[in-house]
């Protein structure tokens, strides 16, 4: 659980939430604004300390780690794609992709080489030397994806990946994630309220008022 504030100003952001996520699955967390999905995502990814409860990732209770250990955990286990991408406008596309490797102290040339390979995966190798501002929204999203996967993390966290994209581009991006990025050794968690991409989820967790209100399996949805 997580609450903000104390006493009469206390607001419960999430309450009694319990869920599992598995490798090889694409897990959606959906819900209206203020339902607590971003708070849940932050707690799952070791960014926001819960007021109570625990998060276990690969048999490790992450909220027992100190700040530096948590940063190490995020760097080595998680990959993030933020809603607004948060790409550095003064760096080239390939340099942006290489950031997680640089934070892992990889030599610059080696980091650039690896980043370029991942730009190829997302089909943007021809844009490697351009700054992100010269790219379209969809292309920027793919750069953010390349950055998230460049260090080959086990878990990928997507925050509203289609929020800034038109319907068709959003669909193509999520399809790309489903077909090219998801693997049996990787878990993808996506926070979204975009119904157009619902078909790509293995499981969808619906939230409202800080609680889980439903879990829909892919097979059940297909029926």
């Amino acid at each position: 659980m997580k609450w903000f504030g104390e006493g009469p100003t206390r607001t419960d952001a999430i309450r009694g939430v319990s869920l599992d996520a598995y490798f090889g699955e694409m897990l959606y967390i959906i819900g209206p604004s203020g339902s607590g999905k971003t708070t849940l995502l932050s707690i799952l990814s070791g960014i926001l300390r819960p007021s109570g409860g625990t998060v276990i990732v690969q048999d490790r209770e992450i909220w027992r780690l100190d700040d530096d250990q948590l940063a190490e955990f995020r760097l080595h286990t998680l990959g993030f794609v933020f809603q607004d991408y948060h790409l550095f406008p003064r760096l080239t596309t390939v340099e942006n992709v290489a950031i997680p490797l640089i934070l892992r102290r990889r030599p610059w040339a080696q980091a650039m080489e690896t980043a370029f390979q991942f730009l190829k995966i997302v089909g943007l190798e021809s844009r490697a030397d351009l700054p992100p501002v010269k790219l379209s929204g969809g292309e920027q999203q793919r750069v953010a994806i390349a950055r998230a996967i460049v260090a080959e993390p086990d878990i990928l966290i997507f925050d509203e990946p289609t929020a800034s994209l038109d319907g068709e581009t959003g669909r193509r991006i999520v399809e790309f994630i489903r077909t090219k990025i998801l693997s049996p050794a990787r878990c993808i968690v996506i926070v979204t309220h975009d119904p157009r991409i619902a078909e790509f989820a293995d499981r969808t967790i619906a939230m409202e008022d800080g609680r889980i209100t439903g879990i829909v399996e892919r097979a059940a949805r297909a029926e």
Partner: peptide
């Protein structure tokens, strides 16, 4: 101007001392 990106770096796994 770069504060949000520094925040993104922190989220990705940059330590405060980095």
């Amino acid at each position: 101007e770069n504060l949000e990106r520094f925040g993104a770096l922190k989220a990705i796994g940059a330590k405060a001392r980095d």
